[in-house]
């Protein structure tokens, strides 16, 4: 929508003399974009193609781009011989829970930091900012020990809880909420809202784009997370997709077709989610979160 409108607004009256230069410029832009997309997607093409190849035709040289006898064997193999659905389910449970909890917890904290007055607010927020610099990887050992002490190895909670500590969501939410005009919450305050009602009925509906950005970001981070599940899960039935798919390779030979099929299936949900929600990602919303 409005794509042509924007193009027109940018250059209402192209000067006749520069018209040739203008279209050359446009061509250059699209050439760059197409090359970039090509490089981005080329490996995917290879994987998609491989996932339909039979084990026999895998190592033909030079490799074919299109499988000669496309087969669904790899997919059938994956779904029948491995607990792929279980891994997928585990990943959904973990990524979904972390996302849902973080959206609530971070937006609440963000609201308090953005709009409430209380002693120690600025100091506490500085702590949040500082903690953005703490690498999760460095806390692997103590986090593992804590989760083990809590008896949560090989459980969903063990996979979920450490993901909730990251303060980047609090930071993002605070930036979003701060950009809302204070008159709105003041009006709500006068209309008889408690602070929780203001949060629930005024703030939350108005930061939907921010929630989507944080939600997608959190979900993707959890979906692709590898190090922590690798450490905390030892039972195959508790493996998430990343760990499960990786385990397909851990034997001596690598089954390229099987791996490719797993790669495709494990990425499909996230690609769908992203395409569905990507318009929120731009809308100036990340930019809003970045202003200091």
């Amino acid at each position: 929508m409005g794509a042509e409108g924007r193009a027109l607004a940018r250059d209402p009256q192209p000067k006749p003399g520069r018209f040739g230069g203008k279209s050359l410029y446009t061509i250059a832009i699209y050439v760059i974009l197409i090359v970039a997309v090509f490089i981005s997607l080329l490996p995917f093409g290879y994987v998609v193609s491989t996932s339909f190849k039979s084990t026999m035709s895998l190592f033909s040289y030079p490799p074919d781009w299109l499988p000669e006898n496309p087969t669904l064997d790899n997919y059938r193999n994956l779904l029948n011989r491995y607990p792929f659905w279980r891994w997928l389910f585990n990943s959904f449970v973990v990524a979904g829970s972390v996302t849902a909890i973080k959206l609530v917890v971070d937006s609440m904290a963000g609201y308090a930091f953005a709009k409430m007055r209380f002693p120690g607010r600025d100091a506490l927020f500085l702590v949040v900012l500082m903690s953005l610099m703490v690498p999760f990887a460095a806390l692997l050992i103590p986090t593992f020990i804590i989760i083990r002490e809590l008896g949560m190895l090989n459980t969903y909670w063990g996979l979920i809880l450490p993901g909730l500590a990251s303060p980047i969501g609090v930071f993002m939410m605070r930036q979003f909420i701060e950009s809302l005009p204070s008159d709105l919450e003041n009006a709500a305050r006068l209309d008889g809202c408690s602070e929780f009602q203001i949060y629930r009925r005024v703030i939350l509906p108005l930061i939907k784009p921010g929630l989507v950005v944080l939600g997608v970001f959190t979900f993707m981070t959890q979906w692709t997370s590898y190090l922590w599940p690798l450490v905390v899960v030892t039972k195959p039935e508790m493996a998430t997709l990343t760990v499960g798919v990786r385990s397909l390779t851990s034997t001596f030979t690598q089954d390229w077709g099987l791996n490719s099929a797993a790669a495709i299936l494990s990425m499909l949900p996230t690609i769908l989610v992203f395409i569905f929600l990507q318009r929120y990602f731009i809308a100036g919303s990340i930019a809003g979160a970045l202003k200091e």
Binding site: T26, I29, A36, V37, F44, T224, T242, V245, Q278, I282
Partner: peptide, 27 residues
């Protein structure tokens, strides 16, 4: 600068980021 198809290119360019490392490594 891309007047048309910007959002499509944007989404396509983002797809590698969506790949978990196990998938990215395989790719």
């Amino acid at each position: 600068q891309a007047a048309r198809g910007g959002s499509a290119f944007r989404s396509l360019l983002y797809i590698p980021t969506l790949a978990p490392y196990v998938v990215a490594a395989l790719l």
